[in-house]
Nucleic acid binder design. Sequence first.
DNA 1: CTTGACCTTGTAGTTACTACAGGGCGTATC
DNA 2: GATACGCCCTGTAGTAACTACAAGGTCAAG
Lengths: 164, 164
Amino acid sequence: MSGQSHRKFESMDAPADAPRSIGDLAVATGTKAETIRWYERVGLLPAPARQGRGNYRTYGKEHLDRLSFLRRARDLGFNLEQVRALLDLADQKDQDCAAVSVIARAHLDAIERKLADLTVLREELRRVVGQCQHGRIDECRIIEALAPGMKEARQSGRRSARRG
Amino acid sequence: MSGQSHRKFESMDAPADAPRSIGDLAVATGTKAETIRWYERVGLLPAPARQGRGNYRTYGKEHLDRLSFLRRARDLGFNLEQVRALLDLADQKDQDCAAVSVIARAHLDAIERKLADLTVLREELRRVVGQCQHGRIDECRIIEALAPGMKEARQSGRRSARRG
DNA sequence: CTTGACCTTGTAGTTACTACAGGGCGTATC
DNA sequence: GATACGCCCTGTAGTAACTACAAGGTCAAG
Ligand SMILES: [Zn+2]
Ligand SMILES: [Zn+2]
Ligand SMILES: [Zn+2]
Ligand SMILES: [Zn+2]
């Protein structure tokens, strides 16, 4: 599973929570080393010890767990502000989980709004794309649909929202 | 419709293609003045004449048309690289519109992929959110779902794509 | 001793804008 | 005339979440 040969923190019995290099952690979590360092810089991962002669970062199981949590939350589309809040909450084990639920539901709502927006957009685009008859550009319905009033305004004054 | 009183390029008969200030163009297209200047800087809008004493930009109908086209394309989700290509194509009136169609279809495909991804995400999030029983955080199913292996690995090794 | 994989730091680039800061111009009002 | 107000100008920096170098240090193997 993990690297052999000349990897730094390779212990022979490999107790699964043995110290890891940043490269090991990267492989284990599917995260680039640069991203892991960046998470550290912005305070999402605690700075690990530096043990080797070469000032290398040395990670333990707590880092692996925290980074795995972070990445899974990112995969679910939570932004880093939300992830930060979730990580903080996950540490307060005896608190009520209401705040967790609030964050997750807010994110779900946002996704549903985005889905609704995209669905509208898809229909509009399908209509536009479907009208192209593949002729000259000055007769192309796609271009016409984008140029309201360049020949004649064909559509009523609709106006979509764009990020807001 | 447009400004009265002390607006700069206000003509009394207002022939609809009269020169406009950047503010007029902003109102007419629902674009902030800063954004219009930025489109100029990155070459999406031609630099207009500067006629007034105050070095102010003076726009004509061609700018209004081009900016309207641009904004409508943006509202449909085309990115600026695509908009740039579409604007270039729209000027070549006697060419075949195949390239236009290619761009539009590629964008539609991208939207459909995004929709598919988001739909999967929504289902996953709904499942996660729906399992929270509102108790203590160390029993919360949302936190558990985010922390694979922190107690026990519950899910099989799936891995989503994220921007790629 | 050299090679090569790995690590370190720091900086700049990506997308499509948005938000100032600091100042000029033109009209209206006191 | 002085002041206020609204619009315009340039230029810089910030946003989200990384990614891509550049320039160099360390370590084990051949
Ligand atoms: Zn992932
Ligand atoms: Zn066509
Ligand atoms: Zn719009
Ligand atoms: Zn819960």
